[in-house]
Each structure stands twice: as structure tokens, then as C-alpha cells.
């Protein structure tokens, strides 16, 4: 038997588990609520501005996303977005601004590796999987709905 699967190893993993420092979950959750709420509120503000400007509610969603992504990218460039996430956790990661952060952060860091294999590739480090599985899930959902209802 390999050492890493031995009884000694299993006993040690128990010891590690019982001595794990607690994650500050309550604090993390409260901050996630606050940050996620704030970013959504900003989004709502932008959306209302577009509606006031004459757009329908549905039409206003897309430009709102565009503006938020621009903000997320800019804050990442300025080096501020990682501070938002450090405190807000998923409250800053889950909104679409966090998606922008996940695209820009690796790309700007791999500038030195060149525009193609560096920036071009790294833009999709996190965004790639999100797009792949988002598009695939939507496709499957669409097919199932088509088969069940006759329209997608």
C-alpha cells in the first residue's frame, strides 16, 4: 500500500481536519450580500437610466451589461477589483463585473508572453469555461424544451 493511502495517512488527515481553522463564513456571507447587492443596485441604476433615455425594459438589459463589463474591466486595470473581491468574495465575483475581472486579470498579466499566446489566450482562462458550459447548457435546455413543447 502506498504511504498516502495508509492508515497512518488516514489518521493524519483526521487530525488535519479537526484542526482546520474555521473560515469566517458568517462575515463572508454578509459581505457577499452587501457587495453583490451594491453591484446589482448600480446595474439597476444604469438600466433605469437607459429606460429613461427611451429604451424598453428588455432592450435596456444588454447595454447595461456592456457598461458594467466596461466598469469591471477598468477597475481591474486600476488594480481595485481584487480589493473588492478580497472583501466581498462572491459578492464581487458573481456579478458580470467579476466576469470582466476574470477576463482582464490573466490577460494583463501575460502581456509579456505576447499578444497572441499571452493576452489572446489568457483572456479566456476563466471566461472560456464559463462560455463553453453556459452555451452548452443553454443548447441542451433549448433542445429539451423544443422536444417537450415544440418551441424552444
Amino acid at each position: 500500500m502506498h504511504q498516502e493511502d495508509s492508515d497512518q495517512a488516514k489518521a493524519y488527515q483526521q487530525l488535519v481536519k479537526s484542526n482546520q481553522p474555521k473560515k469566517p463564513i458568517v462575515k463572508n456571507v454578509l459581505l457577499a450580500f452587501l457587495y453583490g447587492g451594491m453591484i446589482s443596485l448600480v446595474g439597476q441604476g444604469i438600466q433605469v437610466a437607459f429606460i429613461v433615455g427611451g429604451m424598453s425594459k428588455e432592450d435596456a438589459t444588454s447595454p447595461t451589461t456592456v457598461v458594467l463589463i466596461g466598469l469591471g474591466a477598468l477597475l481591474t486595470g486600476l488594480g481595485w477589483y481584487d480589493q473588492l473581491t478580497k472583501h466581498g468574495g462572491m459578492g464581487a465575483t458573481l456579478p458580470i463585473t467579476g466576469f470582466a475581472n476574470a477576463m482582464v486579470a490573466p490577460a494583463m498579466e501575460f502581456r509579456r508572453e505576447g499578444l497572441v499566446m499571452g493576452v489572446g489566450v489568457k483572456l479566456f482562462t476563466v471566461a472560456g469555461p464559463v462560455l463553453v458550459y453556459g452555451l452548452s447548457a443553454a443548447f441542451v435546455v433549448g433542445v429539451v424544451r423544443y422536444l417537450v413543447t415544440g418551441v424552444a
Partner: peptide, 17 residues
């Protein structure tokens, strides 16, 4: 918007933690 946006992030935070 604040409450629902915040709550979605709370669920994600719980999954992460």
C-alpha cells in the same frame, strides 16, 4: 435588485466556502 442580487451572491459564497 439589491436583495435578490445580494442573495444570489450569498448562495454562491456558501457553495464556495
Amino acid at each position: 435588485a439589491f436583495v435578490v442580487g445580494g442573495l444570489l451572491c450569498v448562495i454562491a459564497q456558501l457553495v464556495l466556502d
